[in-house]
Design a binder for these strands. Structure first.
Lengths: 140, 140
DNA sequence: TGATTATATTTCGAATTCGAAATATAATCA
DNA sequence: TGATTATATTTCGAATTCGAAATATAATCA
């Protein structure tokens, strides 16, 4: 292949999924980035801001902003890192925890409906997207 | 499957690709949305604002903004639709055309490098992403 | 046909995102 | 060890994005 059709399709798929998530999650007073951060902490437990940033792939300055928002909403708190004084560890507050406990099952249900159209190919899609995502751009 | 791992991977893949595109295209003074709009017109020829919006999947209000930007840069112009007075047809100016002529080959080369890691599975990825993207959310 | 509903686009204000520069601390290396 | 370079985070200003409301025109239907 030589065209970039694949990228076009990738963009459209994501935008479409993102729109569903946005609408899905809006009534809980969260946007997709906020939800993304909460989701990481929900699944991985407390993590450094830097580590969260590597998971959600947004600019450092955007991280600061999202975290401030989540702190204001009392879903998350910054805890000084034990030995690296540059860092903060992010963790869910009890409110954040129970917020996610309340939201997450519905979110999974709604999203699974869409993902289920893939059937057994879901694992294949995962594999291919991982290949795409982990490409090292050393040779650009 | 029951988790949303697939979505996580989808997001990461896209963000990573998007970052490459952003850096790739930055030196040409364009951002990803602007480039997306130009790309659609470059490939499909003149289209209604509405039609472009359906391709790039951004909010109508964002469309107005991007178009204004592209008009200021003289890459694109709004032409009154022949019979539907609500609509405008968007088309590349000669400047827009030659800009894309200049940029596009490099962009393809850079992106193909990444896509080529997929090998023959690229067609499979397209198929699966299309399935994901075209899901009708009638039953949400 | 005239009233009502739908569609295409823009305007508005607020929220979000970015990149560059600033700040603070950690790691490296001469 | 002290100077230099690297890393984690925030601040800043500008750019981008959104959704709701406004505007204009088209389509529908009583």
């Amino acid at each position: 292949m030589q065209s970039l059709k694949t990228l076009t399709i990738l963009f459209r798929a994501l935008k479409s999924v993102e729109q569903q998530i946005r609408e899905d999650i809006r009534r809980y007073g969260l946007n997709t980035t906020e939800f993304g951060v909460l989701e990481v902490l929900y699944h991985k437990g407390p993590l450094t801001i830097q580590e969260v940033k590597e998971k959600v792939l947004i600019a450092a300055s955007s991280m600061s902003y999202v975290i401030d928002t989540l702190v204001k909403k009392a879903y998350v708190k910054r805890v000084k890192h034990s030995y690296d004084k540059r860092s903060y560890v992010l963790e869910l507050t009890p409110e954040g925890q129970s917020k996610m406990d309340g939201i997450y099952p519905m979110h999974v249900a709604s999203m699974r409906k869409r993902l289920d159209v893939l059937g057994n190919d879901e694992a294949v899609l995962q594999k291919l997207l991982k290949q795409l995502g982990t490409y090292q751009k050393k040779d650009l």
